[in-house]
């Protein structure tokens, strides 16, 4: 085994995703500790162009696998396992993204390596210690890995993007994809967040979450939005329940919004939600749980019962 780190870049529809540059940072920091090299794998798509883009500070070698246009997990699993066999790295890092979680667990299983997902911190002092959350972000934990090698998936948005250019060697990695083991086919993409309203255009968003409890209570926040001249948006559970359409969803799987004012009502502030609204100019949180993580990013906080506060606030503006 070497003391190297292998990080797998992510791209979609012709673009390298930001998490790839965050992965470079996490990978460089880890490789500095282990004393090894940082390898970055670019699999499928415009690999040469992508290789140029991920060639950033700290990357020693970029390996390209020119096979297919878009992400296919069967190809990724084969390619990452073949690269791991060839390079024998100590650690494999992938994004903790929807696609990352579609191949990293299989890679770990196939290589018989332990897997730690959704890392928000990684430390190395002869062994690996990973910081990750539990119970829906209510607690943080440290997990020690009692193994020499590990696969770790890295939460997007936790490491800084590496901007500076690198001087890595770019090398094509030649291996035969076993097509008989490719039993899934990506046939297309669909934008699901379209529709009548684009919440990304709104200057003021009144956003409602699980704390609203019942569908008929949505009316309360609709009235507030009307009184404020704001647009109504929501967190995921509201859309999952079918109380508002998908185009109203703010968050990782919905829209990313950056309004002047974002009023979060009954939203606890799960990381997937925060990813979609943390760039808002002013954030207001109304929640009965004073420990809710939404208050960590709020500029104004009201700890109280939304069923009392929201009607009172509406009255102020009606």
């Amino acid at each position: 085994m070497t003391s190297d780190v292998l990080a797998v870049a992510e791209h979609r529809r012709g673009d390298v995703r930001d998490v790839s540059y965050e992965l470079v940072t996490a990978g460089r920091e880890l490789a500095e500790e282990t004393g090894g090299d940082l390898h970055v794998a670019v699999i499928s798509g415009q690999v040469e162009e992508f290789a140029t883009r991920v060639n950033r500070e700290g990357v020693d070698v970029v390996h390209t696998v020119d096979h297919g246009e878009e992400f296919n997990h069967d190809v990724y699993v084969q390619a990452v396992c073949a690269l791991a066999d060839e390079l024998d790295p100590q650690y494999v890092l992938t994004p903790n993204s929807v696609n990352g979680l579609d191949y990293a667990p299989a890679v770990a299983n196939r290589l018989a390596l332990p897997l730690v997902t959704d890392a928000v911190g990684i430390e190395y002092d002869g062994g690996l210690t990973v910081t990750r959350e539990m119970y829906g972000s209510k607690v943080e934990t440290t997990v020690e890995v009692d193994a020499e090698r590990t696969v770790v998936t890295v939460r997007p948005g936790e490491w800084m993007v590496t901007e500076a250019d690198g001087d890595a060697e770019v090398t094509p990695f030649e291996f035969e994809v076993d097509e008989s083991a490719v039993n899934s086919t990506v046939t297309g993409f669909e934008e699901v967040a379209g529709g009548d309203v684009d919440i990304a255009d709104a200057e003021v968003l009144v956003s409602v979450g699980r704390g609203i409890e019942e569908e008929e209570n949505i009316e309360l926040v609709e009235r507030l939005a009307d009184a404020l001249g704001a647009t109504l948006s929501s967190s995921r559970p509201i859309v999952d329940n079918g109380w508002l359409p998908k185009n109203r969803q703010v968050g990782q799987s919905g829209k990313v919004v950056t309004p002047e004012v974002y009023i979060a009502i009954g939203i606890s502030g799960a990381v997937q939600h925060v990813a979609g609204m943390k760039g808002s100019e002013t954030i207001v949180a109304i929640n009965n749980d004073s420990n809710a993580p939404i208050f960590d990013i709020a500029d104004y906080g009201v700890v109280g019962d939304l069923f009392d506060v929201v009607p009172a606030l509406t009255e102020e503006f009606e």
Binding site: S97, N99, N183, T185, V186, T187, E190, E191, Q252, S253
Partner: peptide, 14 residues
């Protein structure tokens, strides 16, 4: 498959 940013990947799985 629900990708990030309001994009679905349409996939056939044997």
């Amino acid at each position: 498959r629900e990708l990030e940013g309001g994009i679905d990947e349409i996939t056939e799985i044997d």
